[in-house]
């Protein structure tokens, strides 16, 4: 029983390979590549934070350096360091080549 082969799939109905848990291009891979780089963090409110991504955790809590707060296209605040609570994050986008 241990080395029985599964029956061949019906013609024209090839089963998909099961989704691998991780692959190149996964969120984890992206985050590894983007730490230390300039990023744009947009919150669900539409406010943007532009700066250097220091680090983040599994909740998408973010620490940033040299942060500019953009509202409606203009800078309204600057922070040397900023902690952003992850639940507010809409996306993290690379602002320089990875």
């Amino acid at each position: 029983m241990s080395d029985s082969t599964p029956p061949p799939p019906p013609a024209g109905d090839a089963p998909p390979a099961p989704a691998p848990p991780t692959h190149v291009g996964s969120p984890t891979d992206f985050l590894k590549g983007v730490v230390g780089k300039r990023v744009i963090v947009r919150l669900t409110s539409g406010v943007d934070y532009r700066g250097i991504l220091s680090c983040l955790d599994g909740y998408m809590n973010i620490a940033m350096e040299q942060t500019e707060e953009h509202v409606g296209g203009s800078v309204v605040n600057r922070y040397g360091d900023a902690f952003i609570r992850g639940n507010n994050v809409l996306y993290i986008s690379a602002a320089e080549a990875l």
């Binding site: 230390g36 250097i52 680090c55 983040l56 809590n61 620490a63 350096e65 902690f83």
Partner: peptide, 25 residues
């Protein structure tokens, strides 16, 4: 920009290092 140079490995480190300091929230 080496993030480890600032002594921060995870976001909460930033908060930990701010204890007893004035913070903006």
């Amino acid at each position: 920009m080496d993030p480890s140079a600032s002594g921060i490995q995870e976001p909460f480190d930033l908060i930990r290092l701010s204890l007893s300091e004035r913070v903006f929230v």
